[in-house]
Amino acid sequence: MREMIKMVLVLTVITAVSGGILSVLKTSTEERIEGQILKFQKAPAIADIFDTATNDPLKDRFKILFEDEEITFFPGKLEDGSKAVAFEAKGGGFGGDVGLMVGIDLESDKIIKARVTTHSETPGIGSRIKDDPAAFLSQFAGMGFDSNFKTKNDGGDIDALSGATVTSKGVCIAAAQVKQLYLKLKPQILNKMK
């Protein structure tokens, strides 16, 4: 019986101490982690999309709750005076989800630029989608939301990147998601950006 108590006691104490240490560490790193996510995942894509922004889209970001999910929007005020917004959606590629950040002009409802944020595609093949925007992503620029975001093989308007069809499809799924979200949430976005 004493042995039993000791066993339970030791295990409980170790688990409790471990939980305590971890919760302290968690609270002390929380802010930094959120900063890192913005810095490494979103910032490069946003800087690329809003290269003529006069504001700081990262700082001005706001969130909208949609079907239990918080979506972060990055507003951009561009040099020529037009207003735009960028946000991210995901689609399944060859090695996992591909994150696509899309910048949209709020007046013309046209895509300014699209950039890949995160992916785990094959280096040298699927990864070209992010590393070489001119090869694939540039075709999204200027497209409106009447376009069909599917690859041409599937009857859509997008030319797939040769050798990386599955990755291209993943990006198209993300783009279609952006379209759907934008059409549904546009009034709320405009409201928040006033």
Binding site: T15, S18, G19, L22, S23, K26
Partner: peptide, 12 residues
């Protein structure tokens, strides 16, 4: 809201 304990709790 203690998702950071996931590794510990799953292995247990």
């Amino acid at each position: 809201d203690i998702e950071y304990l996931r590794t510990v709790s799953f292995i247990l």
